[in-house]
Design a protein around this nucleic acid. Structure first.
Length: 312
DNA sequence: AAAAGCCACAACCGCCTCCAG
DNA sequence: GCTGGAGGCGGTTGTGGCTTT
C-alpha cells in the first residue's frame, strides 16, 4: 500500500490564494484556532488541501509576520546563523522574530548567496573558495615568471585553459590587485592604505570586543569577517578588489603562512610589462605612464575578459 | 511598442520526523 | 517495537512583474 496522500486532491484548488480565501482562513483560525490542518479546509469552507492552508497561514497570513526588506542587521544574523546551522532554515527562522523559514530561504538564495559568491566566499562553507586558491597558485606560476615580467600573451594562454567566466574574472581581479599593490595605476582611485584589507576596520564596537575575546573559535572569526566584507561593500567605499579583500581577510584569519606566501608574490615588484611582444621597462616611468601601461593592458589586450567581469 | 529574458518570491512537492495508538 | 497519520522541512517550480533588447 502506498503512502496515503495528505488530502484528496480531486477538485481542490492550487496556485495563488485569492483575498477571499485568505479572509476565510483568517476568520476561521481566529475563531477556532487551526486545530487539525487536515480537517480545517472543509470546516472553513475552503477548496484547498490542509497542507496548503498551513503553509499559507505560516508563511503569509500569521499576524506576527514581519514583512518588508531585510535590515542589514538581519542579513548579518542570517549569515552568521547559516555559517553554524547550514540550510536549517527553520532553525535560522527561530532566531529571527517575525521572519519565516521560507522567506529567509528565498532571501538567501536570491540575495545573500550571490553576494558571498561575488566576494569570493563559498556560501556553503563560508570559507574562501577552493577554486580561487587553486587559481591564485596557477596565476603565480604562469603569470609572474622568475624575471617578474608581466606577460600579456601568457595571460591569454591562461584564457584558453580556463573554461568558466567566473574564473576569468577572478584572474582579472588578481591582476588588478597586483597593479594596485604596486601602485602601478589608480584603479578606482584606491588609496594604498586600504590595502591590505583590515578586517577590523569596519567593525562596530560590540563586534570588535567580540573579536578581541581570544576565546572565540576560528569559525566564529570567519563569520565576523564575512559580515565585515558585506558591510564594506554596502558602504560604497572604493572597491580595490573584493576578491583580494576576501583573500586578505580570510587568509589572515585562517592560515598565516598561506597569507604570507600570497602576499610575497603580490608584493614582488613588476619591473617590466610585455605588450605586443615588446617589453617595456617601467622602473623609470612616471606614475602617469605606469597608469597608461596598465590601462592599455586591461583595455586593449584583454577587452573580452574585462567584459566578463560583469558575470559575477 | 512588442518580445524576450531575467528575477523575486509565493506556493508546491515529496521526503522526513515525531508521536499516539 | 511497529505502524501510520500529521506536521515540518528543504528543494524546486510556476508565475507575475520588471528590465532589456
Amino acid at each position: 500500500m502506498g503512502r496515503v496522500p495528505c488530502c484528496d486532491k480531486n477538485g481542490l484548488k492550487k496556485g495563488p490564494w485569492t483575498p477571499e480565501e485568505d479572509q476565510k482562513l483568517i476568520d476561521y483560525i481566529q475563531k477556532h484556532g487551526h486545530g487539525t490542518w487536515r480537517t480545517l479546509p472543509k470546516n472553513a469552507g475552503l477548496a484547498r488541501c490542509g497542507k496548503s492552508c498551513r503553509l499559507r497561514w505560516a508563511n503569509y497570513l500569521r499576524p506576527d509576520i514581519k514583512r518588508g526588506k531585510f535590515s542589514s542587521e538581519e542579513e548579518e544574523t542570517i549569515i552568521q546563523l547559516h555559517s553554524v546551522l547550514g540550510n536549517k532554515w527553520s532553525a535560522v527562522a527561530a532566531r529571527l522574530p517575525g521572519r519565516t523559514d521560507n522567506e529567509i530561504k528565498n532571501y538567501w538564495n536570491t540575495h545573500i548567496r550571490k553576494r558571498l559568491l561575488r566576494s569570493g566566499i563559498d556560501p556553503v562553507t563560508h570559507r574562501p573558495r577552493l577554486d580561487l586558491l587553486n587559481l591564485s597558485s596557477l596565476l603565480n606560476t604562469v603569470l609572474f615568471n622568475q624575471s617578474t615580467q608581466l606577460e600579456a600573451s601568457r595571460f591569454l594562454d591562461i584564457k584558453a585553459q580556463l573554461n568558466t567566466h567566473e574564473l576569468l574574472n577572478i584572474a582579472i581581479n588578481l591582476l588588478q590587485s597586483q597593479c594596485q599593490k604596486q601602485n602601478l595605476f589608480k584603479y578606482n582611485q584606491v588609496q594604498e592604505s586600504s590595502l591590505p584589507y583590515n578586517p577590523t576596520q569596519f567593525m562596530n564596537a560590540s563586534q570588535w570586543q567580540y573579536n578581541e575575546a581570544s576565546s572565540c573559535s576560528l569559525s566564529e572569526n570567519l563569520g565576523t569577517v564575512n559580515n565585515d566584507l558585506i558591510r564594506y561593500q554596502n558602504m560604497e567605499q572604493p572597491k580595490p578588489s573584493l576578491l583580494y579583500d576576501a583573500f586578505n581577510a580570510k587568509l589572515i584569519n585562517s592560515d598565516q603562512n598561506l597569507y604570507n606566501n600570497l602576499d610575497s608574490v603580490l608584493s614582488t615588484p613588476v619591473s617590466s610589462v610585455t605588450l605586443n611582444n615588446s617589453s617595456t621597462n617601467i622602473n623609470n616611468s612616471t606614475e602617469d605612464e605606469k597608469d597608461s601601461y596598465c590601462s592599455n593592458f586591461f583595455d586593449f589586450q584583454i577587452p573580452d575578459l574585462l567584459d566578463m567581469s560583469e558575470f559575477i
